[in-house]
Design a protein around this nucleic acid. Structure first.
Length: 591
RNA sequence: GACUUGGUAGCUCAGCUGGAUAGAGCAUCAGCCUUCUAAGCUGAGGGUCAUUGGUUCGAAUCCAAUCCAGGUCACCA
């Protein structure tokens, strides 16, 4: 139980005893005491004045006296300032917490809750390489999965690969037209980048052909649908659905190139999945669902034989779920997949990490799933995240203004090498150790940068800021960890030695911060928001750095103080490491 | 137009289940390395919390309206 919960209970009990009325934790607020006042936690009294009929001062006095009297092991002092009751928590309380947990690498982790959850993220298209937006998605998905594990869930990570459809055919057509049989091997290119080039080429050629048609008097809209290259692409999609051998062969071949490239990227950024679904396998799933829906009268068939659902009662529109030619649409496939996930993994909750442009779609998906009685439909959560914009404007694949994921990762690693070399602190590292260090720092910086802001908000990617390694950044946290490790290599905590029983200001500050970790994980898990963890570990690191600047560990004023500070350092290091891991980032022993 | 998300320091963001003088980082300026790693620490300046009205002891936070920006409203995925 957290300190705040303990305080709440104590206050509730005391109030009930004092005034013989029923109070609950919701009747008042407990906050951290502002640094300019004496105390650790503050009870805000205004809300309970009316109920007690007391003045702020009288209520504060009575409650403060009662609390210190009834809970001498919890509170040592109190003071009242204008309706705020500031309570000082006993050093002993903090010390017991520290002694119990200083070397517990599981501190903060919650007990298993018996629930199974699937986190779907990444969802790449096999016609182009991953870009900055995918990185936000991947980091979020991974991190949320880790945070949910820490909160007690059994987590399954899944990925749906969009490996079929008109956009895939675009790359294929362009390859046929322009590649002259070139392959990633023959051009020494990474597979996904190689295929991505042809997607760009398609759009260039398409644009050129539109201009030609417009010159002959067609409107822009007509021209878009009638260019020879677009007609060929549509024919190819038709052939693909018919299973035409030479199209299937090319499709397999090009997708294989892309997967080879993705494997490298995923390995570099540390993403993996327990289950990968391919749309080419799932796109037929919706059919069964449609039959079920018709049977249950959730869906209705129109005269042209297309199938619809009427969501007007829910404030939405009528939505198509099956085309008149009998092929399923996106939403239908998704419902089918939702059911399949449930059948295969028996999940209680299902989380989709998908951009906020699909908010409406996900709302519809959940609604239909609920109406159909798809498993765990009520526990479908859309982790909706905002687009990543550049300082120069939006990213657009077709206009070549995307930030490529591989390039960005490499740039971060290069920058970390540059910084590290300038500082010259690890000159004795082997080449392998250096490579690992640069990776740790570069990726740590990137992940922290993308995860430190509220997922649902749009964010601006500032290239110079992202490679800054000072302040509110991953390397700042990593550096703090490395500094602690450096101390712990020289000074060893000895449990047989006596330990200080009082806390100085800086010692208590770090202790107050460390105590919050389990609550932060809980909050972060409930909100599906890794930024809470990022902000928290930054704050822990900052607090420790002040402590470090103010008080020496190896040259502590007494042996008792040294032992105490070693415990504090160990517990801080554990939390920093653990917290960074929840963000998918590592920490180095030295940097 | 309808629905939806946002607007807080020069920039990027916290704070939003109402509480004390609105916080960080970057940038700017001034200090701190013969003492555990200066990727650090300490301090200064910088704000009409988009605007207006309301609710109340108290509003950045809740409500309403307005303005601005993003997203969605496809037989695309």
């Amino acid at each position: 139980m957290s300190i705040v919960q303990q305080l709440q209970q104590a206050v509730v009990k005391s109030l009930n005893n004092l005034y013989n009325q029923l109070f609950t934790e919701k009747d008042f607020q407990i906050n951290l005491t502002k640094p300019e006042f004496e105390g650790d936690y503050t009870v805000v009294l205004f809300a309970i004045l009316k109920q007690t009929g007391k003045t702020p001062d009288a209520l504060g006095q009575e409650l403060g006296a009662k609390l210190t009297q009834d809970y001498p092991t919890l509170f040592t002092q109190y003071n009242i300032i204008k309706g705020f009751l500031n309570l000082t928590v006993a050093d002993d309380f903090w010390l017991q917490l520290l002694h119990k947990n200083y070397n517990d690498i599981c501190y903060g982790k919650h007990a298993m809750n018996g629930k199974r959850v699937m986190v779907e993220y990444s969802s790449p298209n096999t016609n182009k390489p991953l870009h900055l937006g995918h990185l936000r998605n991947n980091f979020l998905g991974w991190s949320v999965a880790e945070i949910l594990k820490a909160y007690g869930y059994e987590v399954f990570k899944s990925c749906i690969v969009n490996d079929r459809g008109i956009h895939i055919c675009k790359s294929m057509i362009a390859w046929q037209l322009f590649a002259n049989g070139a392959t990633p091997q023959s051009t020494n290119a990474k597979g996904d980048h190689f295929v991505g080039q042809y997607y760009v080429k398609f759009n260039e050629e398409h644009k050129r052909q539109i201009a030609e048609l417009v010159a002959t008097g067609k409107t822009e809209k007509e021209a878009e649908k009638e260019t020879p290259i677009m007609l060929a692409t549509q024919q190819m999609l038709y052939d693909w659905e018919a299973g035409k051998p030479e199209v299937m062969k090319l499709w397999h071949e090009m997708n294989a190139w892309v997967y080879e490239g993705f494997d490298v990227t995923y390995k570099n950024i540390g993403s993996d999945f327990d289950k990968t679904y391919y749309e080419s396998n799932t796109y037929l799933l919706g059919k069964k669902i449609v039959d079920l829906g018709l049977e249950k009268n959730v869906f209705m068939r129109k005269e042209d034989t297309s199938v619809w659902i009427d969501l007007t009662a829910d404030g939405l529109d009528e939505k198509l779920v099956l085309r008149k030619d009998g092929t399923s649409v996106y939403i239908t496939q998704d419902i089918g997949l939702a059911q399949q996930k449930y059948d295969e993994y028996n999940i209680n909750e299902s989380i989709y990490v998908i951009g906020d442009e699909q908010n409406y779609h996900m709302k519809v998906l959940k609604l239909i799933a609920q109406k159909l009685g798809v498993g765990a439909a009520n526990a479908i959560h859309h982790l909706s995240y905002g687009m990543v914009e550049l300082t120069t404007g939006k990213m657009k694949s077709r206009e070549g203004t995307v930030v490529d994921a591989d390039d960005l990762v490499q740039e971060m690693i290069d920058t970390s090498r540059k910084h590290t070399e300038e500082l010259g602190k690890v000159k004795d590292f082997t080449e392998n150790e250096l490579v690992e260090l640069y990776n740790t720092i570069g990726l740590g910086a990137l992940k922290f940068y993308l995860l430190r802001v509220d997922p649902k908000k749009r964010m601006v990617f500032n290239a110079t800021e992202s490679i800054d390694f000072h302040g509110f950044t991953g390397p700042f946290v990593q550096y703090t960890y490395a500094r602690i490790r450096s101390i712990l290599r020289k000074e060893v905590y000895d449990a047989s030695k006596p330990i200080s029983s009082t806390l100085l200001k800086n010692e208590k500050e770090i202790m107050v911060a460390l105590e919050q970790y389990p609550s932060v994980i809980a909050e972060s898990a409930k909100e599906l928001d890794p930024s809470k963890v990022a902000i928290y570990i930054f704050n822990v690191a900052k607090t420790f750095n002040s402590f470090y600047a103010e008080l020496s560990i190896s040259k502590a004023e007494s042996e008792e103080k040294k032992q105490l500070r070693l415990q504090l350092a160990m517990m801080t290091a554990n939390i920093l490491k653990n917290g960074m891991q929840l963000l998918g980032a590592n920490v180095p022993e030295r940097m």
